[in-house]
Amino acid sequence: MLRIAGLNTHYGASHVLQGVDLEVPEGSIGAVLGRNGVGKSTMMKTVMGLVRPSGGEVELEGHNIFGWAPHRVARAGVAYVPEGRLIFPDLTVVENIKVAERKPAKDWPVDRLFEVFPSLRERQGNRGSQLSGGEQQMLAIARALVSDPKVMLLDEPSQGLAPLVVRELANVIRRMRQEGVTILLVEQNMKLAEAVANRLHVMVKGKVVYSADPERFRDEEAEIRSRYLTV
């Protein structure tokens, strides 16, 4: 569904993505782990078109979307849940969702989103800035779903959330997978990534250096953790 090959991105002189190779098959969840600053968010922004790549390939369902402007990437079927949620603080919950609802949603209309995220229904008239971190995360996911995406880019959704909320988040992610949403997940919370992903990838210095399915990953976890993930 989503294929990234040899993706390179520079910020000025600093070479952040140095040839990322990654594939997320349809209906699955691919999780990317990695230390702070290795380029995980940069990869998401590059796929989304928010950052200009300097080389490589990005394909969605076999169609090239490399170097496209963000609105075209979004319209092609990629939905973005950024690191830090980036909810519109002065818009209400409903308005936040409506910004992304470019045409009436088929799979994820607002009613259905409120059923998946009951807390958002209760707070639908509240402004984004009045929500808790967990509610903002759910809203960011709802806002992405309303466009009926083929692929969702989900960047560190568990960041700063209480354990109970992280568990709720894991359920939401599983539910999306059941409904056939393909997800590229970036996570620092290894337990969450292991619990939901079909395949795990480790990024080091702008490259994916290790990929495995959850079973093998669990077997090799201790070694991966010490080699690639702890500081």
Binding site: P70, Y80, L91, S147
Partner: peptide
């Protein structure tokens, strides 16, 4: 709505499918 959203975060509006 798009005008208000763009004044708060243009990149996010762009990533949600509107040509800002």
């Amino acid at each position: 709505l798009l005008i208000r959203a763009t004044s708060q975060n243009p990149d996010m509006v762009h990533a949600l499918g509107t040509d800002v």
